[in-house]
Write a protein that binds this DNA or RNA. Structure first.
Lengths: 330, 330
DNA sequence: TTGTATGCGTTATCAC
DNA sequence: GTGATAACGCATACAA
């Protein structure tokens, strides 16, 4: 059995209610006894029992994160950042990698104070039993059932094309990404690309729109290989994700093409790893730490105030210029 | 406030202990009253308070998994498999990505029934407050403080060399892996390689032993590039992990070398993704599903019997022959 | 077959 | 400052 405040009380020679106060840093207990109690507690390896705390105080100080697709690098980086950010607050985080519904169930049982999830293609009007729910995903025109942190993929694409076109003179720009019809984030990226091209009066060569049908390294690799087989080549490529872009780089190199001399590449996702690639990648997207910070602050605000204003938070993407883009060759 | 069993009792005109029994489908309560109570409960929208349940029943049916290094593919595949396996049992799994000690604290507070962790380079004689602890790691000669599932890396290396040498005739074999002095799994692999080479009377060219200083894709890539700069090349390479091997393949291709004609490669780690690489990789290691199954069954056995026999379980590595190894050119 | 009483580990409200 | 004591919602041994 684990150690309780009663055990501590016995050893420290005080009543357990005093122990409780000391543990909660109450001003009602004398500093000397307080520190003595704390010392004993530490020695005994005391850990408060969430169930008991929850039962009386209606709070667990736990945030649950649902993450069924654990094998994607970008998300794992985000999760790490969220975890680090939460560690700076009084809350802790636990994670469930089970399917959405099962995860929700587990978290309900634990009565976590709030839940974060990634809205990839879940279509849910969720019964969360009043547990505050926050999603990182895409704000829709229609009703949103819960607050959303939106990385503003459309805007990001706009900035990417603007840079490529207005600053560097590119006209023949390709997009290599996942054309999923169910993953809203991916849909937004593709959509944003098309819109931006149109905005700058650029025509989209349809064979410059390459569906990777996935988000992994080799998806990007295969896609770019196919794209470059044609003699009609783009002067710049926008890669739909970190992993995809990694594959794109290799595919380009394999064709003996130079980056950025022969071809420029700009990648979606703004994570530090971008700088460590074979060629430091110019990238676009909301910086991952900002995203994490916003997500964490928002869920806590939601937990503590029971609402969030505004309910939808669109983040501001940033362009990170590194070494993979150059002026177009004329 | 939400509805409790007392509220139900009042409406249904019974005592609340009867309600409790009815809700738990106890045979001690008459079917008619049981169904009446259930009906009332449903009408009132009763939701059990898990904190209260947990407080009294001493069981959570939750297994905690500690996983501080979430960005490695092999482990995320293992975690997925473990999660799937646990889902077949009455248990659920939650995960903590915080540093080891912090995770342990969190799980203690949750009173999880058991904890799984990856023993990468934690040197712990842990105070788990009697929560059953199981590790996936390397069994040591000295005392082990808790049960271990050991993937038997040494044996795996032996099988790899045996195949390469006895079946395919290779003599000039290189090992590209992480030579960490703190990560026991990596130490075992290197050690196993050396032992096996010796066993088969093969000499180790020291420049065929390449330290990647990491476990990522580009670590393998850089390492093999360096290795292949020399004119004295191996005819076969053993890659220390899935990610490393991915990089090795690219590095080899870049030098215009054919796999397996010019050079054979066999990778450590036995995960399905191996088949999806550019070249389906022949690999060695305990099949990941077997590993997951063993881990899950063991922790549950440990939870339910309070002990595990045997305390150390060495798994049997399997060779998966795919398309990356060929007979040595003579 | 049903009801009563007790305790799980905490916090919080009182007295002392 | 400190210590009893009453909740919190539930399961369960025991009584009826």
């Amino acid at each position: 059995m684990s150690v309780t405040i009663k055990d501590i009380a016995k050893i420290a020679g005080v009543s357990y209610s005093t122990v409780s106060k000391a543990l909660n840093d109450s001003p009602l207990v004398k500093p000397t006894t307080k520190s003595r109690i704390l010392k004993v507690a530490k020695e005994m390896g005391y850990e408060p029992n969430y169930a008991a705390q929850r039962l009386v105080s209606k709070q667990t100080k736990i945030i649950g994160l649902i993450w069924p697709t654990i094998e994607r690098v970008v998300l794992s980086t985000l999760v790490t950042n969220i975890s680090n950010e939460i560690r700076k607050t009084p809350y802790s985080m636990i994670l469930s990698v089970e399917p959405f519904e099962a995860s929700l169930d587990t978290f309900k049982r634990f009565q976590v104070d709030g839940i974060i999830f990634f809205d990839e293609h879940i279509d849910i009007s969720i019964e969360s039993n009043h547990i505050p729910l926050l999603t990182y995903g895409v704000a829709e025109k229609k009703v949103n059932h819960y607050p959303i942190i939106d990385a503003n993929h459309e805007q990001a694409m706009f900035e990417a094309i603007k840079y490529l076109h207005s600053n560097l003179g590119h006209k023949k720009i390709a997009y290599i990404g996942d054309f999923s019809k169910t993953d809203r984030m991916q849909m937004e990226k593709l959509n944003g690309f098309k819109k931006a091209m149109k905005h700058f009066g650029l025509t989209i060569n349809h064979h410059f729109l390459v569906d990777t049908k996935g988000l992994d390294w080799y998806d990007g690799y295969y896609a770019v290989s196919k794209l470059l087989e044609s003699t009609e080549r783009p002067t710049a490529i926008v890669g739909g994700s970190y992993d995809i872009s990694g594959g794109i780089i290799r595919g380009i190199k394999e064709k003996q093409l130079q980056i950025p001399n022969d071809i420029s590449i700009i990648s979606y996702d703004n994570i530090p790893q971008m700088a460590n690639m074979e060629i430091p990648l110019t990238s676009i997207g909301v910086p991952i730490e900002q995203l994490a910070t916003e997500i964490v602050h928002s869920i806590i605000e939601l937990i503590e105030n029971k609402n969030l204003h505004p309910n939808i938070r669109k983040m501001k993407p940033e362009l990170n210029i590194r070494k993979s883009c150059g002026r177009v060759n004329t």
